[in-house]
Simulated assay, not measured.
Amino acid sequence: MHHVRLGRSAVTTTRLSFGGAAIGNLFTAVDDATAAAAVDAAWTAGIRTFDTAPHYGLGLSERRLGTALHGRPRAEYQLSTKVGRLLDPVSEPAGDDLAHGFAVPATHRRRWDFSADGVRRGLEQSLLRLGTDRVDTVYLHDPDDHLDQALTEAYPALDQLRSEGVIGAIGAGMNQSAALTRVVRETDVDVVLLAGRYTLLDQSALADLLPAASERGVSVVIGGVFNSGLLADPRPGATFDYAAAAPELVERALRMQEVCARHGVPLRAAAVRFAFGHPAVAGVLVGARNAEEITDAARQFGLPIPPGLWDELKTSGLLPAGVPVPKDGT
């Protein structure tokens, strides 16, 4: 699978990368064997970029990903995690973590910390959970309500670690483009991870983040390309950004599916490939909880997309006329 350099760093990403939230028991539990099989299937498919975070299952995703990658040549894959939430153990664990979206015992309490010390301690804890001595990329994770501290304290700490060679690249990850645009303009990050805001159904990042990233030489990785489900399986009751999709969105997704079918392409394939039409996009991150899901994503990613499909989506009004779309071989 093709590798692309992240910004001005020496770190690369495969065009398709593995997102580790689901193997942290996002919404529903998966067992250790299923999680390991998902990582194995990603490797078999040629994916060599793996992303996780302390937030995902109170560290479960990091532990599982580290275990699954153990023994593989470290120089052959890229590993990213995130900072901004410290995990404090609770003295008497009770209940689960489903209030935060993860089907795990509530053994820890998350604490926001974008201070320089918090960044260093968070990274140290992540390395222990991952069972490795280094990660390639570290993202500021969801600093939406802590942006000033993230820019003035967390980012300089990561910049120092980058200059020392401890990490290879700095990023920031959010599900909104406005704050990420500020990060791109006010720092020297190498990459930003944007979830759900540059998809077949939502191109809002075209107004701010993507032009800014192109101007500044910052790579963009797109997550949430299925908008949490609607673009994977459009139907009444499907989810859009983790809530029930509005009827008009369901109708639009179903019409897109009809266009794709006329061109012999699954909607999932168009959803995975769409973002690559913009030159700032280096890769797409897909979450998977089992081998079947990531194998399917890789298969969809590899399908040829007839240019006429994009043309019809535009002429039918399902995509704006000026949206960039992938060229042959992208």
Rank of each mutant, 00 (worst) to 15 (best):
P89A: 06
D97T: 05
G165R: 04
A99S: 12
L151H: 06
L123E: 00
L123I: 03
Y139M: 07
Y139V: 03
R162P: 10
D148N: 13
E124C: 11
R109F: 08
P156S: 06
D117G: 14
T137S: 01
L158A: 01
G131H: 08
T137Y: 01
I170A: 02
R110L: 12
R129I: 06
E164G: 09
I167Q: 04
T137M: 02
R129M: 10
G131F: 04
D142N: 11
R109Q: 15
H100M: 14
F102E: 00
D144A: 14
A116P: 12
D88N: 13
D142P: 04
G118F: 02
G95I: 02
G122K: 07
R121N: 13
H141V: 01
A157Q: 01
G173D: 06
D144T: 12
S115Y: 04
G131S: 09
L98Q: 13
D144V: 08
N175K: 12
R111S: 04
A99D: 14
M174K: 13
S91T: 12
Q149A: 13
V166N: 09
R134I: 02
L147P: 02
F114K: 03
D113L: 02
T137C: 05
H108Y: 14
H100E: 14
L128S: 15
V119I: 11
R129D: 08
V135Y: 00
Q160D: 13
R121M: 10
D133R: 08
R85V: 10
S126H: 06
A103H: 07
G131K: 11
P105Y: 03
A150S: 13
S126L: 07
P93G: 11
Q125F: 11
F102S: 01
Y155N: 05
S126I: 04
K82T: 01
Y155P: 06
V166Q: 14
R134V: 07
D148G: 11
S91P: 15
V119N: 01
Q125S: 14
D144S: 14
G95P: 04
A150Y: 12
D159L: 09
V83S: 01
A103F: 02
R120G: 13
M174P: 13
L130W: 00
Y139R: 09
R85G: 09
D133K: 08
H100Y: 13
L151F: 02
G131E: 07
E124A: 15
E92P: 09
D145Q: 14
T132K: 12
L158S: 01
T107C: 12
I170Y: 02
L161E: 00
P93F: 10
H100P: 13
V90A: 07
K82V: 00
S126T: 03
D159I: 05
D159Q: 12
T132P: 10
A157M: 03
R129C: 09
L86N: 01
A106W: 07
D117Y: 07
Q149H: 14
R111F: 01
Q125G: 12
G95V: 03
L87D: 08
